[in-house]
């Protein structure tokens, strides 16, 4: 009779995916403002720490830090490209990181969960990139000369539509 040992740590593939997303945010924000890049890097360290410990709380703080970094970059005047990449990166860092932590908790590191991680990551990346592309398209088409309030209303309209569809 052997005692079962389950290593309650996230699978390597999940850790790699989440770290890559967090690194993407660091790159996108650091291109524009050093302070924002610094905050994003701190978020990256927290995300990595959260995945390695493993701790959902640390991961959350890391992702929140990365969102903050994106806001900082926006405040200091970053363009739509870096902001979109940074925002999607931060969201993916949370999503993929949390998914990996859940897998680690329920299945452990020894279990082969590559397929599961890949499918989840593909779906999340698709949602992120499609929404970023649509937002960017609408922005370039409509922003020329339109007042800011029009864009806000457009966004509010999207939210209302999404809620109504539900």
């Amino acid at each position: 009779m052997v005692a079962v040992t389950v290593t309650r740590r996230p699978p390597t593939a999940g850790v790699a995916a989440a770290t890559a997303a967090a690194a993407l945010t660091v790159a996108a924000t650091a291109l524009f403002a050093v302070t924002a890049g610094g905050v994003a890097a701190a978020g990256f360290v927290l995300v990595l720490a959260g995945l390695l410990r493993p701790s959902g709380r640390l991961l959350g703080y890391g992702a929140a830090g990365q969102v903050l970094a994106v806001l900082l970059a926006g405040v200091s005047g970053a363009g739509p490209g870096p902001l979109l990449v940074g925002g999607v990166g931060a969201a993916l860092a949370w999503d993929l990181g949390d998914h990996a932590l859940g897998l680690g908790e329920q299945l452990g590191r020894e279990t082969d969960a590559t397929r599961n991680v890949a499918v989840h990551a593909a779906a999340s990346v698709a949602v992120g990139s499609v929404s970023a592309a649509v937002a960017f398209g609408v922005y370039t088409a409509a922003a020329g000369g339109q007042p800011l309030v029009a864009l806000v209303f457009l966004l509010v309209g999207v939210v209302a539509l999404a809620s109504a569809l539900r």
Binding site: A91, V130, S131, Y139
Partner: peptide, 15 residues
């Protein structure tokens, strides 16, 4: 009055 920030919001809304 910095329109690109709205895009970050749009991504959040999408998720």
């Amino acid at each position: 009055r910095h329109p690109p920030l709205l895009l970050v919001g749009a991504v959040g809304v999408a998720y």
